[in-house]
Every structure is written in C-alpha cells, then in structure tokens.
Write a protein that binds this DNA or RNA. Structure first.
Lengths: 142, 142
DNA sequence: TTGATTGCAAATGCTTTGCAGCCGC
DNA sequence: GCGGCTGCAAAGCATTTGCAATCAA
C-alpha cells in the first residue's frame, strides 16, 4: 500500500519541482495510514513509532506543503486549539464532533455542495472553501 | 442604547449569581456596539478608546463568561489564529470570509437549519452547534 | 557541486493561570 | 467583612523562523 501512496507523492513533488525527502515521505505515510484526524504532535509520534525521527518544525512545514499540493487538509475541530490534519479526500464532506466521546466522524452528502451552489448562483460570492463542523452528541453518547 | 444593553447583562449576571463589574460592562458594551467580529485585542482597544482600561486577561475571562451565558459567540475565521467574537444573535447564520479584502459577512438563511434537521432526523446525532464558514471572494473582490 | 531542506533552538503570538489586593454585595 | 474579580506578571502551548549543516538531484 505504501508503494502506491508513495508513488503519488513522489510524482507530485517532482512535478512541482520539490525534492523527495525522508521527512516528507514519513509525514505522508503517517497521514495516509491514519483513520482519524491527527494533530502535529500525533503525526510526530506515529513517525517515531515507525522507527524514524522527524523534527516538529519539519512536520509543520511538510503539512503546509501537502496542503498546498492539495494532498492534505487541516481543520480546527472541537475546542482544542491544535489544528488537526487529514488526507484531502476528493469528495466534499463535513465533520461531526461528539462533545462527549470526542469522536470525529466524516459525513458525506450533498449539503456542502448545496451551500456552494446556493452562494455561487445567487450571491456573487466566489466560493473557495466550505467548512462545516457540527458539534453535539453521537448516537452512542446521546 | 447602552442602558437597554446594560439592563440585559446586569439582570442575567445577577440571576446566575455573578457580580456586575466594570470590566464586564465594558466588554459587553464594546461587543454590542461592534458591527463586525472583534479579536480580544480589538475589544481591549475599544474599551480603551471609551476611556476605560481593562486588562487583557480579564477580557478573556469575561468573554468566556459571556459565551457561557449565551450572550457571545466565538469563532476562528479565515487564516488568523486569534479567535473573533460577536454578540450571539438568536437567528442561525454563517460566515462568508473574503480572502481578498478580509471582510466577514453574515449570511442568514435556512441552510444551517437544514443541516440541523437533516442530522436530527436521520442520523441519531444530537446537534448542539452548527458552524459553517465559507471562504472565497466577495462580490466586490472577485 | 549546489541549493533546497532539515534539525535545532530561539522567538512569537494567543491564551491561561497563580496570586495578592480590590470591590461588589 | 467576605469572597468573587481584577490586574499583573509569568507560564503554557501551538506554531514560526533564522541559520548552519545536510542531502537530494
């Protein structure tokens, strides 16, 4: 699996004139393998667990780069003050944050697209990004 | 105007067993008078402009209190890392952030309610808060 | 070789906290 | 007067930055 993931990253980096380095591969692998959203600290931890060691500053720099490349996406979820990162999925989705168990679910649907269409069509606002976060209690905690 | 605004705050504070102090009134007045969203630093500045002087820490504490009372609302808008505060309007709205001029518009509509209904009805998720932020370019900047 | 990239450490900026003194009740 | 609140200063975190050393190309 890593090979495919790696191929994507490598190709994109080269294409844009960036170098393919170990920190960059490590961050990307940690992020791709993650089920949930990761803080920078968690990304570092997973890289360490995988036997590598990458400086926190480099992780920040790499995540910013991945975002610029369209491969990663950051959001501020819940009440924590640390940004959380995930792989940028092509489909638009939003987040359901449970205030009780802390779980973050993805919810894929037409809602985000509806917002986009609504604004594009009638309000002269050129939508770039739609960020929708819903907090509450999930089905298991309610 | 201030008198009405003040009356609301005073009554609510007393009711909940909190004291009515000058910093609390000053923060509330600054926030109520503001058209747009204010950072903590901006709240301090406006209070100073009004001839008072309040410590930043107290402003933070007061804003947290106002949020708990349901009078104020905070959000992280755009790319800035400082929270921005506004009076908690009873109607649900979302924010349109222009990445070019930085302006933040309120947009009132049924969209937020739609999201809420959608989730409440079919997904077993007890919605507490819906936060919707749209970034892009406003009609004047596009 | 060459310059982009990293690691390290220091700096920055927002926010929180401990505590002594003050002031609303 | 009592105890909640404030102001002050220091601490806490997440994030950024300067710079010399490193390493991909």
């Amino acid at each position: 699996m890593d090979s495919l993931v790696d191929a994507d990253l490598t190709a994109l980096l080269r294409e844009r004139g960036y170098r393919v380095t170990r920190p960059r591969r490590a961050v990307w692998e940690a992020l791709s393998a993650a089920e949930d959203h990761l803080t920078v600290e968690q990304v570092c931890a997973r890289i360490r667990d995988a036997g590598h060691d990458v400086d926190t500053a480099s992780v920040y720099r790499t995540l910013d780069l991945l975002e610029e490349l369209g491969l990663a996406r950051s959001s501020r979820l819940g009440d924590s003050d640390a940004s959380r990162w995930e792989v940028a999925h092509p489909d638009e989705h939003f987040h359901l944050v449970c205030t009780s168990c802390g779980r973050v679910d993805h919810h894929i649907g037409s809602l985000v697209a509806q917002v986009r269409d609504h604004l594009d069509a009638g309000h002269g606002f050129a939508v770039d990004e739609v960020e929708l976060t819903v907090t509450g209690r999930c089905s298991e905690c309610r």
